[in-house]
Amino acid sequence: MLQTPIADAAQICLRVRGLTVAYAEEPALQGISLDIPRHQVTAFIGPSGCGKTTLLRSFNRMNELIEDARTEGVIELEGCNIFQAGVDPAQLRRQVGMVFQRPNPFPKSIYDNVAYGLRIQSSSSRAANLDQEVESALRRAALWDEVADRLDAPALTLSGGQQQRLVIARAIAVKPAVLLLDEPASALDPISTLKIEQLIHQLKSNYTIIIVTHNMQQAARVSDFTAFLNAGRLVEYGPAEAVFTNPKERQTEDYITGRRG
């Protein structure tokens, strides 16, 4: 069953139809159909093992890196099926960037972390602007002011919150269309968490953002649309304000209010 809170088809960035993912013979997602709106923040919430991270990892075909993972169904990114023959997963992952729970900067300098992706895909014109592109990405990731005077310092000398923003800068440097965030603040302290949330808010005018979070209040704070998954199925999907004040499904209500389902 398709659930979409998006009235205007022109606003759809990602279109998921009948997505089923299984690890070995164990189903992780069953018949998911939903639309992700462009330049909005969509949050996936649900209990551990509900399939929300599997769904997130489907958008840049990360599940293929897992042995025995099997995917059926269609995901269209701006109208093109990402599973069709001829789509290069590496190319797809540049368009659909990902940030993980634990910040994972490369053991290189701050500058080189951000420049890494740019160098790989660079044409000569791009390389000439490398300094500018690095600065721009660091500014968009709200990190520039804190690192401008020590770009050559090792990235691992940054705090956890700064590292996570550096990883976001690295992801957006290659100008993706979509940013996937998998529990991006769960390893951070409350202040660093708020900085990441503020950053998400700023980034959404340029990127379509999908976030997986265990923190319901975080989903309520940052997301425009919220999807609740349970046992591999999409239970409810709607505008965040409706999901958190007046969910339609009993399962959603029980989960977000902390009741025994």
Binding site: T245, T252, I256
Partner: peptide, 9 residues
């Protein structure tokens, strides 16, 4: 408690 849904209402 940061109540939600029915609890908040």
């Amino acid at each position: 408690r940061q109540p939600a849904a029915t609890d908040l209402r």
